[in-house]
Simulated assay, not measured.
Amino acid sequence: MLALSLGGTAQAHDFWLQPQSWQVAPGKPLPFVVEVGHGSFRQQWGADGGHLLALSDLANGGAVDVRPLFKPGGEVPHLTRTFRREGLHIISLVSTNAASDLPAIRFNDYIKAEGLTPAIDGRTREGKMGTNGRELYSRRAKALVQVGRASRGDNALATRPIGLTLEIVPLRSPYALAADHILPVQILYEGRPLAGALVKLTSLEFDARPLRTIRSDAAGRASFEVPPVGDWLVNVIWTKPIAHPKADYLTTFSSLTFGYSAKRGR
């Protein structure tokens, strides 16, 4: 287990979609909020619709653009969606880029704690560990919601990439885990498996620090034992150097959320 200690701006980058419930009946409105940060830094996202690049509801029947339902200006719930089709639904969100400029000591602590080796190696090699850390960053989030009864295509839908720049792809649906409660995931960056990223599992009911952190293997994979109750977040961060007048790195934050309203069967 790896305990991460991040403060201020870096901590606030943790970002996910939180529905009122993970299981809902067809035709019943379901509110969502967008959450940022963990522990004492946790808050609701205050951005307006201009920071929203995409917001989609994907089910076996296809994807629906639900950006028109987003409430701007930090109003909550940020989204209320009424699902008509039974089965698994994937709500996904993509934000626009924002800029961050941190003092050297804070940026160095952040990239080391998050295992961002492209920034660590690049700053070390170029002798820039004593300079401010400048990045452009954006966020990707997926929430898995079960609407009514499970359908035949749910597992295939859950395990199929949806094309996010940095994406956490479950290799089993979290709602159809075997008796071992093991959830394997694969991390994809720009469509390819990402090795060496720190992948974290966090209970959103006790979210001051991750329950477990695993470095993705050569195939971009990591596996977690997920307790059969509660709200769960898997998240990962990655970066790459860029040539930009206001930033040296382009960083992407990605999350996957799911949960259990009642204990899973064994």
Rank of each mutant, 00 (worst) to 15 (best):
M1L: 12
A3G: 09
L6W: 05
T9K: 06
A10Q: 03
H13D: 07
W16L: 10
L17N: 09
Q20Y: 11
V24M: 14
V24I: 08
P26M: 05
P29L: 00
V33L: 07
H38P: 08
Q44A: 09
G49Q: 02
G49T: 00
H51E: 14
L52R: 07
A54W: 01
N60L: 14
N60T: 14
A63P: 05
D65K: 04
R67Y: 03
P68Y: 06
L69V: 07
L69C: 01
F70H: 02
P72T: 02
G74E: 13
G74F: 08
L79A: 10
I90N: 00
I91H: 11
S95N: 04
T96H: 14
N97F: 07
A99T: 13
A99L: 12
D101Q: 13
D101C: 12
A113P: 03
A113Q: 12
E114I: 08
G115H: 12
L116I: 14
A119H: 02
A119G: 04
R123H: 13
T124Q: 11
E126G: 15
G127R: 15
M129E: 15
N132A: 14
Y137S: 05
S138H: 13
S138Y: 06
R139I: 08
A141I: 03
K142C: 06
K142E: 00
A143E: 04
A143N: 04
L144Q: 02
V145M: 00
V147I: 00
R149Q: 12
G153T: 06
A156F: 05
A158D: 07
R160A: 11
I162L: 09
I162Q: 04
T165E: 15
V169E: 03
L171R: 10
R172S: 11
S173W: 02
S173G: 09
S173A: 08
A178Y: 11
A178H: 10
P184Q: 04
L188E: 09
E190D: 14
E190H: 15
G191F: 15
P193C: 13
G196F: 14
A197W: 06
K200R: 15
S203R: 15
F206G: 05
D207V: 05
P210K: 10
I214A: 08
R215V: 12
A218K: 11
G220H: 04
R221W: 03
A222Q: 11
S223A: 08
F224P: 12
V226C: 13
V226S: 02
V226E: 03
V229T: 13
D231E: 13
W232V: 11
I237M: 02
W238D: 02
K240V: 00
H244F: 11
H244Q: 09
P245Q: 12
P245K: 13
K246A: 14
T252R: 06
T252I: 05
T257K: 03
Y260M: 04
